[in-house]
Each structure stands twice: as structure tokens, then as C-alpha cells.
């Protein structure tokens, strides 16, 4: 207990909460708690917050924490396909697009409640390419090659969730961040978020577009997947002409790659 207070301090409560048969609690804390209704009440409040952490905060934040603490080599590779690198095939960065995605794709129904969705600034996607030891920031018209490793930085603005996915000319949709998982990841708002890992360009035919979607709430992963798969099935022209895939509740930026022989 603190010298400035006759009650348990927050540090005392936390020590008590960590107590277990293998971590015996300090006797005075337990004795005080037995004798002090005010501290017992405070303990209930703290337990409710601890329960909230386990129920809500832990499941959402653990993947982010794990990503940030994962051991990394200088470049963490993951490949779109198992295709070997083909030299001499260049891809052009055709455009970097940003949109406030309030449109609805043909055939999509409008969700029932849009009243409390706030779409604010943010979602700018910065893309960097590494070839050998050289790293360059990509701009429209820039050239990249199969085998180049792309890294992404997203300006989150006022948003707290990020999801990066893409579609390719082969008719497929892919979840890139979190890799292989169709769900949004919590990120800090008002920050430049460097997406862990890099994306290696392969020599798959046709255009490829990558979308960065920031939102105030987690997106419905299944719904996003359905939208992107439909877009991919629309073929190369649909991919070229669709800067925003029609994901409501998100600010979307995208980058389009086009193969050039």
C-alpha cells in the first residue's frame, strides 16, 4: 500500500491479480482486501476490465503484436505462386489510385445501417520495390520486374483497421495482410504503418491490382473476399478499370501492375 493512501495501490492490485499457487501473493494485500470494502469494490472493477481484455482486446490485438514481434530477416519473402523468376519480363506501374469507396458494385445490395460509419481521411498506399540492394518508391509509369520485392506503407489517417488484398489476371483474389487471412488487422491511427513482410512479383499473366483498405471497424472478410473474387472473374479489363472494388466502410487505395513484354 502506498504511503499516500490507506488503500491498496494499482500496483498492489496487479500483484494480487498475478497471484497463483506458483506465484504466492503478498499476505498484507490479501489481509487488507478482506478488511476493506472499498478495495474489494475496486477489485471488482479491475476484474471486469481484465475480463474485457480477455474477451475483446486479446483476440484482436494478439495477431498484431505477434506480427510486430516476429523475428525477421532483412527481407521476409513470400511468393504469390511457386513460379520461377523470369528475367526480362517487365511490369509497369500503371496507376496509384485513392478513392472514398462509397459506391456499390452492380449486383451488390446496400448494407442496412450506414448511419454511424465515419469515413475520414487516410488510406494512402505507398509502395516500394527492391531489386538487389536498390530500393525505390514506385510512382505511376514506373517499371518493376518479376522477382522484385514490394513493400507497402499505409497512412492510416483516422482509421484503426487495415486489410490488404489483391486480384490478378489469372482470375484469383489473394489476402496479403494479414497473409492468407480474410480479415482486418488493428493498426494505430494517424500513423504510417509499414506492412511487415514483402510481396514478390511473379510472372503470372495479365494485370494485377493490390488494394489497401483502411476502416474504422473490422471489415467483413467473407464479404470482401466475395467482392474481390467477383472482380477477378471479370478478367483483365475489369481489374484495369476498377480502382475501388466496392467495399463499403473502407477508404481504399490501390496500385495496378501491368506486364509489358
Amino acid at each position: 500500500m502506498g504511503m499516500t493512501s490507506p488503500h491498496l495501490t494499482c500496483l498492489d492490485f496487479d500483484s494480487l491479480a498475478l497471484a497463483s499457487p506458483s506465484r504466492p501473493a503478498a499476505g498484507p494485500f490479501v489481509a487488507h482486501l478482506d478488511a476493506c470494502p472499498a478495495c474489494r469494490e475496486q477489485q471488482k472493477v479491475r476484474q471486469a476490465l481484465a475480463d474485457q481484455f480477455a474477451r475483446e482486446v486479446l483476440p484482436r490485438s494478439l495477431p498484431v503484436v505477434r506480427q510486430r514481434l516476429a523475428p525477421r530477416s532483412r527481407w521476409h519473402w513470400w511468393a504469390l505462386t511457386l513460379s520461377p523468376v523470369a528475367c526480362g519480363v517487365l511490369l509497369t506501374v500503371l496507376g496509384l489510385y485513392k478513392s472514398h469507396d462509397r459506391t456499390v458494385s452492380v449486383g451488390q445490395s446496400i448494407p442496412g445501417d450506414l448511419g454511424d460509419i465515419g469515413i475520414k481521411g487516410g488510406g494512402d498506399l505507398l509502395t516500394y520495390a527492391r531489386r538487389g540492394n536498390k530500393v525505390t518508391r514506385l510512382a505511376p509509369g514506373g517499371l518493376v520486374a518479376a522477382g522484385d520485392a514490394l513493400r507497402f506503407v499505409v497512412e492510416t489517417g483516422a482509421h484503426r483497421y487495415l486489410f490488404i488484398a489483391g486480384v490478378d489476371g489469372g482470375g484469383h483474389a489473394h489476402a496479403y495482410f494479414p497473409f492468407g487471412q480474410w480479415q482486418s488487422v488493428p493498426v494505430a491511427p494517424h500513423a504510417r504503418f509499414e506492412v511487415p513482410g514483402s510481396l514478390v512479383l511473379d510472372n503470372a499473366p495479365g494485370p494485377e491490382r493490390i488494394f489497401a483498405m483502411v476502416s474504422s471497424r473490422p471489415l467483413d472478410g467473407d464479404a470482401v473476399r466475395a467482392i474481390l473474387e467477383e472482380l477477378a472473374r471479370g478478367g483483365p479489363q475489369a481489374i484495369r478499370s476498377t480502382a475501388a472494388p466496392g467495399v463499403l466502410e473502407a477508404e481504399t487505395s490501390s496500385i495496378l501492375f501491368e506486364k509489358r513484354e
Binding site: 496487479d14 491479480a17 481484465a50 480477455a54 482486446v57 486479446l58 505477434r66
Partner: peptide
């Protein structure tokens, strides 16, 4: 990592709140 986060996460969260 998961064990540590589950163990100390509540204390961190309560502190931040």
C-alpha cells in the same frame, strides 16, 4: 509470447484505461 500477453496484458490494459 501468447502466454506472456495473456498474463500481463490485463495489467497493461487496466493501466492504460
Amino acid at each position: 509470447l501468447t502466454t506472456l500477453y495473456k498474463t500481463y496484458g490485463p495489467a497493461i490494459y487496466i493501466r492504460c484505461r
